[in-house]
C-alpha cells in the first residue's frame, strides 16, 4: 500500500506536485495517468525517497522507504529506462543489485529469463535498445519479489508482445495481492490494465476512482439537429435536462438516451435531421479532464477532441 498525504514538490518557483493525497491499494492495478510534465515521475520518485517532498509525506506499507531495511523485497521500481552504468552487462547489473540484499544468483538468472534477457550474456547495457532497457528495468524491479511494484511508463519502447506481457505481469502481481502502481500518459493502455485510476494534471489530482466509474462519471451526451428546435428545447428544459445550443439548428443534450429524445421530438411534432449519441470513450473522458491541465499544449487541436466533446 502506498499512502501520500498532502504531498508537494517545488523546484524554485515551480510547483511540480501540488498538495496531492491518494492511496494505492494492494491487490489491484492502479493506473497513474496524466499528460507529460504532470508530475507523475516526480511523485513516484518521492514515493521511493529519491526526491524529498517540499511538504507532506508518503509512506510505503506504513513506513518511509528511506529507512527501509528490506528495500528490494518491499519496493520494486522502474523509474528510468537504463538507469545502469553503460559498460556493465545486464547480468552484472542485476548481480550487483541483488548483492546489496543478499539475494541469490539463481534469482538473477530467473529475472533475466523472465524478461527475455538471458540470451544477451555479453552485451553491454550501453548498446541496449529502449525496449531492452525497459526489460532490464523491469527485471531489476522484480528482483526482490517486492510487495509494491512501481512502474513509470513501463511499455515505452516495447513491442506489442512486450506490451501484452507487461499488462499480464501487472495483473498477475495484483492478483497475488501485491500493490501495483503504473504510470502512463496513454489512457488506451490504462483502460486495458488498471482497475483503479488516479489522474494527475499540472501536479494536482483530477480524479481518483475505479475505472468503471471513470467512464460513467460524465453524463451521456447526444447531438440533435433540426430546423425547428425550440419546441423540443422547451419540453426537455421543463424536465430539467441540461441543454447546450451549438448553433441555430444544433443542440447538445446531456442525460437522456437518444430513444427518449426521439420520443420527445415525436410528441413535439418536429422533424429531426440528426440524432447522434456521442461516443464517450475513456480517452475522451481523459482528454476532457486534462484539457486545461496540459503542460505542453500542441498547436493543432486534435479532431477527436473537437468532434467528440465540443
Amino acid at each position: 500500500m502506498i499512502q501520500a498525504q498532502q504531498l508537494t514538490k517545488r523546484y524554485g518557483a515551480k510547483t511540480v506536485v501540488d498538495n496531492v493525497s491518494f492511496t494505492v491499494q494492494p491487490g489491484m492495478v492502479t493506473g497513474f495517468l496524466g499528460p507529460n510534465g504532470a508530475g507523475k515521475s516526480t511523485t513516484m520518485r518521492m514515493i521511493v525517497g529519491l526526491a524529498k517532498p517540499t511538504a507532506g509525506q508518503v509512506a510505503v506499507n506504513g513506513n518511509n522507504f528511506r529507512s527501509s531495511k528490506h528495500p528490494l523485497t518491499e519496493v520494486g521500481a522502474l523509474l528510468e529506462a537504463k538507469s545502469v552504468h553503460k559498460s556493465l552487462t545486464a547480468r552484472t547489473h542485476l548481480r550487483a543489485m541483488a548483492a546489496t540484499g543478499g539475494i541469490s544468483r539463481s534469482r538473477v538468472d530467473e529475472a533475466l529469463e523472465l524478461t527475455g534477457l538471458s540470451q544477451l550474456n555479453r552485451k553491454k547495457v550501453g548498446g541496449f535498445s529502449l525496449g531492452m532497457g525497459q526489460r532490464l528495468g523491469i527485471a531489476s524491479a522484480l528482483l526482490g519479489d517486492p510487495q509494491v511494484l512501481i512502474l513509470d511508463e513501463p511499455v515505452n519502447g516495447l513491442d506489442p508482445e512486450g506490451v501484452a506481457w507487461v499488462r499480464n505481469l501487472a495483473r498477475q502481481q495484483a492478483a497475488e495481492g501485491k500493490t501495483v502502481f503504473i504510470s502512463s500518459h496513454l489512457m488506451s493502455e490504462m483502460a486495458q490494465t488498471a482497475d483503479h485510476l488516479i489522474v494527475i494534471g499540472r501536479g494536482r489530482i483530477l480524479a481518483d476512482a475505479p475505472i468503471s466509474e471513470f467512464i460513467d462519471d460524465g453524463l451521456r451526451q447526444t447531438i440533435v439537429r433540426s430546423s425547428n428546435l425550440d419546441p423540443l428545447m422547451t419540453v426537455l428544459a421543463a424536465e430539467g435536462v441540461q441543454l447546450t445550443r451549438l448553433d441555430s439548428t444544433t443542440l447538445r443534450v446531456a442525460g437522456p438516451d437518444s430513444e427518449s429524445i426521439g420520443r420527445r421530438a415525436l410528441e413535439s411534432g418536429i422533424v429531426l435531421s440528426e440524432l447522434r449519441p456521442l461516443q464517450r470513450t475513456l480517452e475522451d473522458a481523459y482528454m476532457e479532464l486534462t484539457r486545461d491541465e496540459v503542460e505542453y499544449k500542441s498547436q493543432v487541436q486534435h479532431d477527436a477532441v473537437a468532434g467528440g466533446t465540443h
Partner: peptide, 12 residues
C-alpha cells in the same frame, strides 16, 4: 512467464 519462484530475504 511472469512469475519468479525463488524466495528471498533481502535484508540490506
Amino acid at each position: 512467464s511472469t512469475h519468479l519462484a525463488t524466495p528471498t530475504t533481502g535484508k540490506v
